[in-house]
Design a protein around this nucleic acid. Structure first.
Lengths: 151, 151
DNA sequence: TTGTTTTCCTACTTGATTGATAGGAAGGGT
DNA sequence: ACCCTTCCTATCAATCAAGTAGGAAAACAA
C-alpha cells in the first residue's frame, strides 16, 4: 500500500513542467523539487517513452508537455513509471491467484484498486495546479466529482 | 501503490486461522496457503506482538485469534505488519513534505489514503469468510456498507 | 520428575528488487 | 568547430523478500 519514490518524483516533475511557462531543464527541475538529479533523469526517460513529455536537446533545450495539463491525469503518470496502477506481491492486482479460504481477499484488493482508479483517473495535472477548484483532493468521503468528464 | 508480500501473506494467514475450528500450526498454515514457511514465521511474530494472534507451544499447540473474526478488520492486520496504512516514499502519507508547486499532490495521496482506510477499516475477517454477505468487496463504486458499525 | 516430542520464537545469512549514481555518447544551437 | 543539454548504459548502495540454524518453552508419557 505504498507509493514508490519513483511515482512521487514523476508526478512532482510533471507538475513543475506543467506550471512553467516555457521549457524546463532536468537540472532546474531537480533543484526546484529537491530530488536527486541522476535519479530524476531515469524517470524522465520513462515519461518521454510514454509520450507524456517531449524532450529537446541542445542550447535552450528542456522538457515540455505533449498534451495540455488538463488532458493528463495522475493515473497516466503513475502507469507510465510504475506499469500497473496497483500490484499485489509484485503482480498486477487482477491477476493474483488465491487459494481456497482467502478468495474473498482478492475482492478487497480489487475494490481498493477501483477506489484508487476513481481518484487518479479523474484528477488532472491542471486540477492540482488550481487548489481552489480541486474537489477530489479535498473530500474525504463521497464519490468526488459529479461532472461526467468523459475521457 | 503496491501491496507488499508481507501484507498479503499476513491477511491470508489470519483468514486461515479464523476459518479453522481449533488451533492451527505454522507449518499447516504455510502448506495450506502455499507460502514460504520461514517467512511466514516472521510475519506471525508481528501479528502476535500486535495482539491479534495468540501462540501456544508444545503438542497440540498452534495459533488462535485473540478476538472474534468479526472484530478484526483488514486495516488492523495491515497496520500490524506494515506500520502505516499507506506510505509515500517510505514515509507515512500525512507526514510527507512537498515544495511549492507540488502542494496539491499531497491532497491526492491523502484522498487515496482515506478511500483505502474506508475499505480496510470497515471490512472484517468475518466478512471475507462469508462471500455472500460482503457488500464492500463487491461494489466497484459507492460508499459500501450503510450500518454505522461503531468501533 | 525426567525425558521426549512438538511447537513456537529469535538471530543471522543469502538473493533479488528498488533507489540512487557516474561517465560517457548523441544531438541541437551558436 | 565548439559548447551546452538531453539521452543512454553500466555500476553502486540500500532495502525487502526469502531461507537457514539453533534454541526456549510447553504439553504429554513413563
Amino acid at each position: 500500500m505504498q507509493v514508490s519514490a519513483r511515482t512521487d518524483y514523476a508526478l512532482r516533475a510533471m507538475l513543475a513542467v506543467a506550471d512553467a511557462p516555457g521549457r524546463v531543464t532536468a537540472a532546474a527541475l531537480a533543484r526546484a523539487q529537491q530530488m536527486p538529479p541522476a535519479f530524476l533523469q531515469s524517470i524522465l526517460v520513462d515519461l518521454r517513452r510514454a509520450e507524456l513529455l517531449h524532450g529537446r536537446r541542445g542550447g535552450e533545450g528542456g522538457y515540455t508537455l505533449t498534451r495540455p495539463a488538463a488532458e493528463i491525469t495522475v493515473g497516466d503518470v503513475v502507469r507510465a513509471v510504475n506499469g500497473a496502477l496497483t500490484t499485489v506481491r509484485g503482480l498486477p492486482t487482477h491477476s493474483a491467484a488465491y487459494p481456497e479460504r482467502a478468495a474473498g481477499l482478492r475482492d478487497v484488493w480489487l475494490a481498493v484498486h477501483d477506489r484508487i482508479a476513481d481518484i487518479v483517473d479523474r484528477t488532472t495535472l491542471a486540477d492540482l495546479l488550481n487548489p481552489a477548484q480541486s474537489p477530489e483532493a479535498r473530500a474525504s468521503t463521497g464519490t468526488g466529482r459529479r461532472p461526467p468528464t468523459p475521457k
